[in-house]
Amino acid sequence: MKLYWSPNSPYARKVVVVTKELRIDDRVKLIETSAMPTKENPELSALNPVTRIPTLQLNTGKVLFDSSLICEYLDEFSDGGLLPMLGPARRQVLKLELFGLDIMDRAVVCRQEILRPESYRWSGWVDAQFDRIGKILDVLDANAPALDPDLGSITVGCALEYLDFRFGDRPWRSQRARLTAWQEQFALWPSMTSTKHPH
């Protein structure tokens, strides 16, 4: 399998962490690429009309995209157990994953906004996104995830480290001692330490 990814992408990192937790990373070839909104990527768009990463090309030639879909496939492919079977446990993992994805979604578009020419930036919009991120972080602080990796905790862990990576000027740990302690412990998993964003 071939995974088109970028070490700067929290979504792609999530998938790479999953391959390591499932112990199938040796079966997935990483191909570093970019998917910038303002630049064409013919190779990637030929595989994936959405032209986003991560994109996974299977050995059959079929292509999957969207981190959640890819992770679901990889979990099924490996009988890994990062996503429980139907029922309350699965819904809880998916709910946690959605919290992490929402943080990523808002942070990524904020990153794109601050890269625009200064005269075109809307700082109030960025502030509003971080207000909503803060509400999710408050919920996570009150209900810290389990330390064992599953699709939900991996997504949250990657989302929090993406905030550190791109928005160090907006510290999220203040007044969130439980979530901070959780993140510090979760970040020690080998799958997380080996996939850190570049500095």
Score class of each variant (00 low, 15 high):
112 Q>A: 12
49 P>Q: 02
38 T>D: 09
164 D>M: 09
175 Q>P: 08
117 P>L: 05
17 V>Q: 01
47 L>N: 11
193 T>H: 08
125 W>R: 14
168 G>T: 05
173 R>F: 02
194 S>T: 10
46 A>G: 10
74 L>T: 01
29 K>S: 00
193 T>A: 04
33 T>Y: 00
195 T>L: 05
63 V>F: 11
108 V>P: 03
135 K>L: 14
41 N>T: 10
140 L>F: 10
84 P>W: 14
17 V>S: 00
45 S>I: 14
196 K>M: 07
163 L>T: 12
156 V>Q: 05
46 A>N: 08
141 D>P: 11
166 R>F: 02
179 L>A: 06
86 L>R: 10
157 G>Q: 15
160 L>W: 08
89 A>W: 01
118 E>Y: 11
6 S>A: 12
91 R>V: 09
164 D>P: 10
99 F>W: 06
155 T>N: 13
5 W>A: 07
9 S>G: 06
148 D>I: 11
168 G>I: 08
100 G>S: 05
172 W>C: 09
151 L>I: 12
28 V>E: 01
155 T>A: 15
12 A>Q: 04
125 W>S: 12
174 S>C: 11
173 R>G: 05
166 R>P: 11
7 P>E: 02
1 M>S: 13
9 S>D: 05
139 V>K: 11
187 A>T: 06
83 L>H: 02
46 A>T: 06
139 V>P: 13
167 F>L: 10
16 V>R: 06
163 L>Q: 14
48 N>G: 08
38 T>Q: 04
144 A>Y: 13
101 L>C: 05
53 I>S: 06
92 Q>Y: 01
195 T>E: 11
108 V>C: 05
101 L>G: 11
113 E>Q: 07
133 I>K: 04
23 R>H: 06
60 T>W: 12
174 S>N: 10
100 G>L: 01
190 P>L: 00
80 G>I: 03
122 W>G: 03
194 S>L: 07
14 K>N: 01
45 S>Q: 13
56 L>V: 06
116 R>P: 08
74 L>Q: 02
15 V>K: 03
107 A>W: 12
44 L>T: 01
166 R>M: 12
19 T>S: 01
